[in-house]
Design a binder for these strands. Structure first.
Length: 313
DNA sequence: GCACAGGTAGATT
DNA sequence: AATCTACCTGTG
């Protein structure tokens, strides 16, 4: 009895993805609902989709995926391709020829790219991300999904995932979608706090209330010009410069968005000699220096800086 | 036991 | 306009 379809190829992506880079792409902080399984397999959830992905054993750079038995593999493959391919991007057009550090980052993570995630889910994830480590952000979202999201599986079917996430002594299974914003509007701040959101709970509740009062508002932002979209996101509680840029970069394909977090601040300070520069000025420098794909450059710098921190020379 | 974590917002210089 | 500081809570 198999609950997963047989492995099959992921439709070709713009660039090959080596196994090491796949980990950075799925589990490097762009998305918070991917989980490592043994033997290089990743299990992830976005929107109504639930998949496992792994490097294709016989084809370096290519990927394979599988979907739950109740899912339509063709539809899943199409959705997965959109998700993984991300917005149109060209790393070669970044100014690596005149920037040795950027060149080193590009060489260290060949094939790294920006995902195209659902807009509303990306907003939720990054509102929860404030002063939290990736592991803990995953816990919050897993709890939110398990308690307040719709089941990924159809009525009557059993969840297929045996992969779990630990939160203290609690074991969380991967079986539900993230709650949508309309669904979140029906969840109390106390219930949100019970999902380990802490002070982020009132931000989530505040956003849900705003969005419920203004139907279509969020959907309009997704397709508005970058500057306008960002200005509007900044009016939401718990959404500042960094979160707004993350949402637009990872959830709307806006490569000009240049989120400046503690890692990028560290990287820019150290590698570009910007000692003492405040985040706003670092962001300005980044947009000028890296150009219209500054957000793509940011992802390479981010990956490189974290890798360097894990294995210092 | 305790510092720290992909920040934000409001208060205080 | 720059610089604090409170805000929650799990993990190492």
């Amino acid at each position: 009895m198999t609950v997963w379809h047989p492995w099959q190829p992921v439709p070709p992506l713009p660039r090959p993805i080596p196994a090491a880079v796949l980990a950075e792409l799925l589990d490097g902080g762009q998305a918070f609902r991917w989980h490592r399984l043994p033997e290089g397999v990743f299990e992830g959830v976005w929107s109504r989709h639930h998949v496992r992905v792994r490097p294709a054993p016989a084809a370096p750079g290519a990927l394979e995926f599988t979907a739950p038995a109740w899912a339509d593999p063709a539809a899943t493959a199409a959705a997965l391709r959109t998700y993984l391919a991300g917005p149109p991007a060209d790393p070669d057009a970044l100014p690596w020829r005149s920037d040795p550090h950027l060149a080193a980052c590009l060489a260290a993570f060949p094939g790294l790219s920006i995902l195209r995630q659902p807009f509303g889910e990306t907003l939720l994830g990054f509102v929860c991300s404030a002063t939290k480590q990736i592991v803990q952000i995953k816990q919050m979202l897993a709890l939110l999904a398990a308690r307040h999201g719709q089941p990924l599986h159809p009525p009557g079917a059993a969840p297929v995932s045996d992969s779990v996430l630990r939160h203290s002594d609690l074991v969380i299974r991967i079986s539900h979608r993230l709650p949508t914003w309309p669904e979140l509007a029906a969840v109390s701040v106390e219930q949100l706090r019970a999902c380990a959101l802490g002070f982020r709970a009132r931000h989530v509740a505040g956003i849900a209330a705003r969005l419920a009062a203004e139907p279509g508002w969020l959907e309009a932002i997704e397709h508005a010009p970058y500057a306008e979209a960002k200005a509007r996101l900044l009016t939401l509680p718990g959404v500042g410069e960094k979160v707004a840029d993350c949402v637009l970069l990872f959830g709307a394909g806006r490569l000009e968005a240049f989120p400046v977090d503690t890692w990028i601040l560290k990287a820019m300070t150290r590698r570009y000699g910007l000692d003492g520069w405040p985040p706003a000025q670092v962001a300005h420098f980044g947009r000028i220096h890296f150009g219209p794909q500054a957000g793509l450059a940011q992802q390479f710098l981010f990956a490189h800086e974290r890798a360097a921190a894990r294995s210092p020379r």
